[in-house]
Design a protein around this nucleic acid. Structure first.
Lengths: 222, 222
DNA sequence: CACATTGCATAGTGGGCACTATATATGTAG
DNA sequence: CTACATATATAGTGCCCACTATGCAATGTG
């Protein structure tokens, strides 16, 4: 007996979710056929329909499995950095400065989902739940950070988390269109302004110069 | 002679572009067939291929025709507002606080294009050109504004324009997922921080309370 | 008034894809 | 060992859609 049926089923499900996340991020949801996902997972489309019922079901399951993964990594990276501005730089490096990494693909997938949410209430609900939860976690970390640093951010923790996420998201988008227009120093200046850290020293300061990339890796959620 | 051939051709082209922009924004590029665009324009798919060669050609033409329209309206709205914080509020109202208006649909279309640009170099080039140009205009307006107001923004005009656009884009995205988490006051606080206007008064200040909506309208570019 | 050209319509055509119906093989229970 | 249950494979089916080939009526030209 190589595997029980339950084990095989669980493995198939995990493979399909991983393949779905990968391909959806790479080629876009509409650019990927159910057969392609199944093949990438070493299965056939029959398995997808047995597990998820439809392509949409697979999509929602991918979204669900994906919760928290990016934020968890982010906090880990910030924790192992020391200077205040260096920590802001670590935030940017994780969100928007990692071409061809896991976080890069997650962010493309997030955009795919966002776009679909604009027209599909079911996806919108799922994304909203995720958004509320991750903002809560960010707000907590940000308020701890602000009191440690003795700075006065421009809004209360929850609103501050919204502003920070918005700025990072917008910068990351801009970077994809026009990489030259966005760099780490710029992101740090923007973040510092929101955190109430005035005024940021110039480029000569080494805290915002190119950093050795830390290597906390993402693991695909179960 | 009702129309010369040239007039008819020009009208068909304009109709197709308008219908394409509308439908692409509404249902997504992949969610709209060439036949649907043609029908919305009162023509048939033959006209689309005669004018643009392919669906992609139509898309690029839509992108091209769309240049500047949003920024032009934005500056007009800001110009007819008086108080400094009121002007920041006017910026947000135009970018992110207008459900079911033209600017709302433009922003959805912008996201459609952004997403496609992530996988299609031809679209990416077109978007990049648009981005550079509009940042230039914004930088100019922002630096004028900053010197008029005697404030010291957190970065030079070009970088400041990038930060402002990023923040507005991110807030607008967040608003679509979770409208309650973003309001005008929050946007004004964030913008003010980037502009170096410390510290923003609380909510009781009337400058950020609900404003009568101005009515500068978009015109579909020729 | 011949007749070329243009602008668009009409009518396919082939391919891709979401989804279904059913078969098969492997594990499971009595 | 028999009989059933389950997980996935196989083989369609019908639809949608980008794109093409061609027709045709209106416009332009001498």
């Amino acid at each position: 007996m190589a595997q029980t049926q339950g084990e095989r089923k669980a493995e198939t499900r995990a493979r399909l979710l991983a393949a779905g996340a990968d391909l959806f991020a790479d080629r876009g949801i509409d650019g990927v056929s159910v057969d392609a996902v199944a093949e990438a997972a070493g299965r056939t489309s029959g398995a997808v329909y047995a597990h998820f019922g439809s392509k949409q079901g697979l999509l929602l399951a991918v979204l669900d499995a994906w919760k928290q993964s990016v934020l968890t990594v982010l906090f880990a990276e910030v924790a192992i950095t020391d200077s205040p501005l260096g920590q802001l730089a670590a935030v940017w490096d994780n969100i928007g400065n990692n071409p061809d990494t896991d976080s890069d693909r997650w962010s493309l997938l997030e955009h795919e989902l966002w776009q679909r949410a604009a027209r599909d209430p079911e996806v919108a609900d799922a994304l909203r739940a995720r958004s509320i939860e991750s903002r809560g976690r960010s707000a907590h970390e940000l308020s701890r950070w602000a009191s440690t640093m003795s700075v006065q951010p421009v809004a209360d923790p929850d609103d501050l988390a919204t502003l920070v996420k918005a700025l990072l998201t917008g910068l990351e988008m801009q970077r994809r269109i026009e990489p030259a227009s966005v760099n780490c120093d710029l992101a740090v200046r923007g973040l510092a302004a929101l955190m109430g850290m005035s005024p940021v020293p110039g480029d000569s300061d080494r805290t915002t110069s190119p950093r050795q990339r830390n290597t906390v890796t993402h693991d695909t959620p179960a």
